Simulated assay, not measured.
Amino acid sequence: MKNYISITLFILVTGLFAAQSVIIEATGTASMGDTKSKKETMDEAKANAKRNASENASTFISSETTVRDYVTEKDLLEAFSQAVVKVLEELKGEWFKDEMMGESYKITLKVEVTPKEIASKPGKGDMIDSPTAPLTVKLWTDKNQTEFKAGEKISLFMKGNKPFFARVVYVQNDGTQVQILPNPFRKDNYFNGGTVYALPSGTDKYELTVNPPFGAEKIVVYASTAELGDVKVENADVLYVIGEKPEDTGVKTRGIKITKKEGKNSKTAEFVEQVLEIKTFK
């Protein structure tokens, strides 16, 4: 395992919700009545849970962040009305007898609500500088350089607008996933908001150097206000290699450990996935 990684391209999010989502636990119920089958009732309960998740996510973003400083009320409603709701896990499902409606089904889901991307209000500044805005995490290179030749060493920097947990994964051209953070010598994956973190730095034992094979690769940053879900990793000297299929890494990372805030009715956490397309050359 080489102690060198190739990185070349910096991408900046330009619109609100371009990489942001909300992971939330939501419940839905439905009654059979005289016309529905059990499967139809269960499907209706699931649909109701997904709709409730979208509505609760919109309420959470509106009440817990200063999103209204960056978008209009109309745009915010539109963003969540067209949100993509993805079921991450079915937590619980049970049949019960309602006194009024008879045989009924109740389901609790963990879902990810990803609003439609919308433009921010002009002249409102960058959310990365506002700790009360929705979670925003950015990654950039030294001097914002976008192209690197073989042998060049790369310095990366990461910053969030509020405290967050993060996993940084470098996906090689052959599909190998190298976990940059956390790693065997830098295991803490909790970061303070408003602080710039260098990769590598401190106790890190690796360098980011452009080496063959050259071509299209990427770095993915997963970040959340709650602890991230676990993925299988193998120790590869100074870094970890993820032992999951690439399509499973994001899913398992989204298995975050969310807890209910005191006085709140739902378990909710903010989530961000940033993808940096990369290209190296000889």
Rank of each mutant, 00 (worst) to 15 (best):
M1S: 14
I7H: 01
L9P: 04
I23N: 11
T27P: 05
G28E: 07
A30D: 07
S31Y: 10
K36V: 14
K38H: 05
A45M: 09
S58G: 11
S58L: 08
T59A: 04
I61C: 03
T66C: 07
Y70C: 12
K74C: 07
E103L: 15
T108V: 15
V113A: 01
I118L: 05
I118C: 11
S120L: 03
K124W: 14
T136A: 13
K138I: 02
K143M: 00
Q145Y: 05
A150V: 00
G151L: 00
V169D: 12
V178T: 10
P184R: 13
N189T: 10
F191G: 03
N192E: 12
G193D: 01
V196F: 11
Y197W: 15
G202R: 15
G202F: 09
G202T: 00
K205P: 04
T209K: 03
V210M: 06
V210A: 06
N211S: 08
E217M: 08
E217Q: 07
Y222H: 04
A223Q: 08
T225I: 04
L228F: 12
D230H: 06
V231M: 03
D237M: 06
V238F: 02
K245A: 15
K245P: 00
P246C: 10
D248G: 15
G250D: 09
V251M: 01
R254W: 00
K264Q: 08
T268L: 00
T268I: 11
V272E: 06
V272Q: 11
E277W: 10
E277G: 13
E277P: 15
F281Y: 05
